[in-house]
Design a protein around this nucleic acid. Structure first.
Length: 444
RNA sequence: GCUUCCAUAGCCAAGUGGUAAGGCCAUUGACUGCAACUCAAUUACCGUCGGUUCGAAUCCGGCUGGAAGCUCCA
């Protein structure tokens, strides 16, 4: 039973639309994953957290989600790295996939239903490209295959770019092989260390083709519900995916195109080219993954997010605030026996998430709950405490922040009771000693 | 050059036509054996100029400042 209407901002139409899956309650989501040639940086973690949260939210609303995120393991950068390290590309890919997956785990992202690797689908890509050639949407030149963009009448509809202006824009590299400067490559002739035989040449597929084919193959259909990724992928990557899907299957590939904003570092774009980056690995070695997750959810997913020291400290403080409230609640109610009853706050929370995944507002509901919980605990209102704790934990789980909930042991309970007893007996020397221990355990 | 987007308190950040959510910080008070925690109270006319409107942070236009895309990129 689906609970209520959900609105999502669709980049394709540039407006919020009511979300209607093609085959409810099933939802198909594809998110462009990383090219696995190096450590990912914090910017790469944004789509991970955003779309994982979308998935969790949809599942909480009783949708059954097939969540697919690929690994691009066919790429010049991987080849170059493999050559410079005198190894093969698979070694490089495997290494950085493992690191990336550890990063995903650290931010408590659910494991995707499927994580296809481009290398596993190359024969299908060759087949796909062949069909485009047969249909006249692609042409072969010197062993390379290019997509004939002019065959797509409204090319540019996603990124809102104009073909003639693009050409005038002149930053497109001159390539005399192409019929048109904006045509993009589907098959690249190459005898590098990573290549496949094709009817046109020994070579490898183009990046834009990889995603389309993986979507077609993994979902076994030409059109899915949601396609996500960073803003920068809108053009040309997603635009070109759409063009190929239209040519191949007369489909726009996905009904809803979602794009997350960028992460800036100290007011500058986070980019490897300028060296202004923090790798996810480095950040997560220094800070808890929940901190990163909270930071990424504290700003609406489409807005830019500026990372700096203050923001990290703020996230730490906020997590502590939630933790403290739940600990004090846990000291008077058993979390294993919470009455499964939701506070009215819960529907407010869901309403915010239903409005284009407004996580900042959703978080504000959690803080509201925290305040109510603190009051309930102080009043020793067991029923209210139980209900609020249940509700807050449920909300945290939907945001993927449930790991911040501390587990209180029997020993902790006992210690706390001793503390209260000592205070009641005005044995302050003893109570202060216990207090130190409680603080040490993070319980006060 | 072309195309988009953004500009809300010391900081983070919602709100997109009816007189500014939430959090951090700060100040004051309550609670406390002292403290911490917690609770309560206080703190913004929304970059700027002009227009539309009974009414605008919210719509339109100019200006200033900033960002992104047009090339690999989350």
């Amino acid at each position: 039973m689906i609970k209520q209407d959900i609105y999502l901002y669709n980049s394709l139409t540039e407006k919020k639309e009511i979300f209607r899956p093609l085959n409810a309650p099933h939802v198909d989501i594809y998110v462009c994953g990383p090219t696995v040639y190096d450590y990912v940086h914090l910017g790469n973690m944004r789509p991970v957290v955003v779309f994982d949260t979308l998935r969790r939210f949809l599942e909480s609303q009783n949708y059954s989600v097939k969540f697919v995120s690929n690994y691009t393991d066919v790429d010049d950068k991987i080849i170059n790295r493999a050559i410079s390290e005198q190894t093969d590309t698979k070694t490089i890919s495997d290494r950085f996939i493992a690191i990336f997956e550890a990063n995903l785990h650290a931010v408590n992202a659910l494991v995707p239903t499927v994580t296809p690797r481009a290398t596993a689908y190359v024969p299908k890509m060759i087949e796909f490209i062949g069909e485009l050639v047969d249909k006249g949407f692609a042409y072969v030149k010197d062993g390379n295959v290019y997509f004939r963009v002019t065959k797509i009448k409204d090319y540019g509809k996603l990124a809102n770019v104009n073909v003639s202006e693009l050409i005038v824009g002149a930053r497109i590299e001159e390539n005399i092989n192409k019929e048109n400067p904006i045509d993009f490559i589907l098959w690249k002739k190459s005898d590098d260390i990573l290549n496949w035989n094709s009817p046109w040449s020994k070579g490898r597929p183009g990046w834009h083709t990889e995603c389309v084919v993986m979507i077609n193959e993994v979902f076994k259909k030409p059109k899915i519900d949601i396609h996500g990724g960073g803003f920068d992928l809108k053009f040309p990557h997603h635009e070109n995916e759409i063009a190929q899907a239209e040519a191949h299957s007369d489909s726009l590939l996905a009904n809803y195109w979602l794009h997350n904003g960028f992460v800036n570092l100290n007011d500058e774009k986070m980019a490897k080219s300028t060296g202004n980056i923090i790798t996810a690995q480095d950040f997560l070695e220094e800070h808890d993954g929940n901190i990163l997750r909270l930071i990424l959810l504290s700003t609406h997913y489409r807005a830019p997010l500026n990372l700096k020291e203050d923001v990290i400290n703020l996230a730490k403080t906020e997590i502590l605030k939630i933790q403290r409230a739940l600990i004090s609640a846990n000291l008077i109610v058993d979390f294993n026996q919470l009455v499964p009853q939701e506070s009215p706050l819960f529907s407010k929370f869901i309403n915010f998430l239903s409005d284009d995944l407004n996580t900042p507002n959703a978080l504000s509901v959690i803080y509201e709950g925290v305040k109510e919980l603190n009051i309930a605990v102080r009043n020793n209102d067991i029923d209210e405490t139980s209900m609020l704790a249940f509700t807050i934990i449920k909300m945290l789980r939907i945001l993927g922040l449930e790991k911040i909930v501390r587990v209180i042991t029997d020993e902790d309970h006992k210690l706390y009771q001793e503390y209260n007893l000592a205070r009641a007996n005005k044995d302050f020397a003893k109570s202060d000693k216990i207090r130190d221990e409680l603080i040490k355990r993070g319980l006060m």
